[in-house]
Design a protein around this nucleic acid. Structure first.
Length: 316
DNA sequence: GATGCAGCGTACGGTGCTGT
DNA sequence: ACAGCACCGTACGCTGCATC
């Protein structure tokens, strides 16, 4: 880079005509073409991934509206030649970055479905009953798991979890957040990061991406609670939204925040083999209610460092 | 090399929800 | 009632592959 390009002023325009005339109640809606000339491709290829990398690191990946400063920062970093002030109203940059984040979360939902379908397929079950029983073990009903003191564990969140019949139905588990479907789903985050130069990647742990991956996998697993994938009656109930999954992600975050740096290396190491491993797969789920609060299987998913498989050879 | 096709990702428009 | 937000469905265009 011999010299910086000349800075040009980008003036905000009104939304495209087709967007304005679309509905009875028109409202601001921007398209990529509403961005300044010459910025569209860099928006897609550079700014978008940087933004999603940031979102992946957030403690609350559902709440994005209060990160104008970061949007501005990555805009300035990406577009040294185009001056623009990011703002909440009438701004295509703000609007399109939020849209990109919605798509990002939906991609996690889809990836979870694909990962779970592949996982169950690989288990070689022969009847729906077998699948239903296994799902019941992996994702016990909320009421059951919270009322039973000894069962503070969602087995689907662990690489390995098995009932030990002698000691009060105690569940032995290892490998927090390293179950195959969670690793598979988290690989989506690694795929997004691949196109970002190492020096520009976020350096924190991808807490937001991990809680989204975990919730997405639970959502997909619960679709199979009857042994076959059940479509929801109401498509709005099936959304991977803050409304339906915000409580779950908050609770999972309790465990995520306790994860050590060694734990993070293991989690990333487990996800790496799944990079670019999946194709999209469409299926749906029945609704899920959150009824109780307090410590539970989500908040107890933390490895006791075993010393084995340190993950020390992982760079991410 | 040209053409056709399938798979996939993205952009865009639609719509229910929520806040004022 | 209205405006804006949040999420979903899908059309479209791009890419890669097969076939001629």
């Amino acid at each position: 880079m011999s010299k910086l390009p000349q800075v040009s002023k980008f003036r905000v325009r009104v939304p495209a005509l087709s967007a304005q005339k679309s509905a009875k109640k028109p409202h601001p809606r921007f398209r990529v073409k509403d961005l300044p000339n010459g910025s569209q491709q860099r928006f897609r290829e550079d700014l978008g991934p940087l933004w999603l990398d940031f979102v992946s690191n957030l403690e609350n990946p559902w709440d994005l509206a209060n990160h104008i400063d970061v949007m501005q920062e990555i805009w300035n970093m990406t577009f040294t030649d185009i001056d623009h002030t990011v703002q909440k109203t009438n701004d295509p940059v703000y609007f399109l970055l939020l849209q990109r984040a919605y798509t990002y979360r939906r991609d996690f939902a889809k990836r979870g479905e694909t990962a779970v379908a592949a996982y169950l397929d690989s288990m070689g079950f022969e009847t729906p009953d077998e699948i239903a029983r296994y799902i019941d073990f992996l994702v016990p009903l909320v009421s059951e798991i919270r009322s039973e003191e000894t069962a503070k564990c969602y087995p689907f969140m662990w690489r390995e979890a098995k009932n030990i019949m002698n000691a009060d139905g105690h569940i032995e588990r290892t490998g927090a957040f390293c179950s195959r479907p969670i690793s598979d789903t988290l690989a989506l985050y690694l795929e997004i990061r691949e196109c970002i130069p190492q020096a520009r990647r976020q350096t924190d742990n991808p807490r937001g991406a991990l809680v989204l991956a975990t919730a997405s996998v639970e959502r997909a697993l619960r679709m199979y609670s009857t042994g076959i994938c059940v479509k929801p009656k109401d498509r709005f109930e099936s959304r991977f939204s803050r409304k339906h999954w915000g409580v779950t992600t908050e609770e999972v975050m309790v465990s995520v925040k306790k994860t050590t740096s060694r734990g993070w290396k293991k989690i990333i190491k487990a996800a790496i083999p799944y990079i670019r491993a999946r194709k999209p797969h469409h299926s749906l789920r029945p609704g899920l209610e959150k009824e109780h609060e307090g410590p539970n299987g989500y908040t107890h998913c933390v490895d006791v460092d075993s010393g084995s498989d340190s993950g020390s050879d992982v760079i991410f």
